[in-house]
């Protein structure tokens, strides 16, 4: 049987060699990007139309796993582009010295100014608690902590939104963060490994609110014509997630990698992203946002730590979180 296994591996290895005639671009990204229901297939088709190349997506679990993978591979990585890090991972990514300046120019429509020469933002969103429209949500995190509203959140150690909430509480409350977490501890029904488990439990009716994005109701509105879900606006502001891509220093086709990054912020790619990745476009397409996005709530204040601050704070924030919730 082992022969068969190795034969199968060998066959698929030769299959990838056979198509290596045209220039090839390998993009590492998180798994939900490459899934048939994510932006991957449309982005791939659109870019291949113009580049005369072969775009290969490789899916790796999520943003944190993606960075771990690139660190493991180091300078010998096959990746030309890494797509799917966020501001919480940028500092660690920068430290690896594996990423090259992008050379991308774009008129970003982000609530924050963006002038990072290496990491190119391609979409963004606000973290938010999603709830059924028939409930009146609390006005902010402190009110939530004082209320008896039940919530489901994700673990910051294994999930991107989980880490986002950690930074959100820290950014909004600073030294008071631990007290807020202590207040929240009796609201938290449970903490899940990832977003899917949490959202699934919420849809099962296990809690009144779930940590997700302000854009989540857009999926229900557009794809399911269901307007029963809404995101709560909190008056202390919402922490942002900015998703970025970057070219690898070690890429053997740096030109193509830069073209791809420029393509990511182009009209074509930016029109694909909102209804496939369910996030706001980093550069507003000419046609504006798709219908359904207009109905979404818009936070008044955006919170975001600079990558270096986020990296410096997250250890402390995690310890506070662990202390407050383990009591």
């Amino acid at each position: 049987m082992k022969h068969l296994v190795f034969a199968a591996g060998f066959l698929s290895a030769t299959a990838t060699v056979a198509v290596a005639q045209t220039p090839e671009l390998t993009v590492y990204t998180y798994d939900s990007f490459v899934s048939d229901w994510g932006p991957g297939p449309q982005i791939e088709a659109a870019f291949e139309d113009r580049c005369g190349c072969d775009l290969n997506f490789v899916g790796v679990e999520d943003g944190a796993a993606l960075l771990a993978r690139v660190r493991l591979e180091g300078a010998r990585s096959e990746a030309d582009v890494v797509l799917g890090l966020d501001t919480n991972l940028i500092a660690a990514a920068r430290e690896t010295d594996l990423f090259a300046p992008s050379g991308v120019t774009a008129e970003y429509d982000l609530p924050v100014t963006w002038d990072d020469p290496v990491f190119v933002p391609y979409d963004w969103g606000y973290f938010a608690f999603v709830h059924d429209v028939d409930m009146t949500p609390p006005a902010n995190l402190r009110a939530l902590a004082e209320s008896d509203t039940s919530i489901i959140i994700q673990d910051p150690r294994s999930s991107t939104p989980g880490l986002g909430l950690l930074m959100w509480v820290k950014a909004a409350y600073g030294d008071e963060a631990e007290a807020i977490w202590e207040g929240l501890s009796d609201n938290i029904v449970t903490v899940t490994k990832g977003w899917s488990e949490a959202y699934g439990l919420f849809l099962e009716g296990e809690a009144e609110m779930v940590l997700s994005y302000t854009t989540s109701p857009a999926y229900h509105l557009i794809a399911e014509e269901d307007d029963s879900k809404a995101a709560a606006v909190f008056d202390e502001g919402h922490y942002m997630q900015v998703e970025v891509a970057a070219a690898m220093e070690t890429s053997d086709s740096p030109e193509l990698a830069r073209d791809f990054l420029q393509f990511l912020v182009s009209e074509t790619a930016q029109s694909i992203l909102p209804t496939t990745n369910w996030m706001y476009p980093a550069v507003m397409p000419e046609a504006g946002l798709p219908e359904g996005f207009a109905q979404l709530v818009e936070p008044e204040k955006a919170l975001l730590y600079a990558p270096e601050d986020a990296a410096a704070l997250r250890r402390e924030a995690l310890d506070e979180w662990l202390r407050a919730l383990s009591r």
Binding site: D31, S35, S196, Y199
Partner: peptide, 9 residues
């Protein structure tokens, strides 16, 4: 997992 990740519960 991918279907769940794409909201298609």
């Amino acid at each position: 997992y991918r279907l769940m990740g794409a909201y298609r519960m």
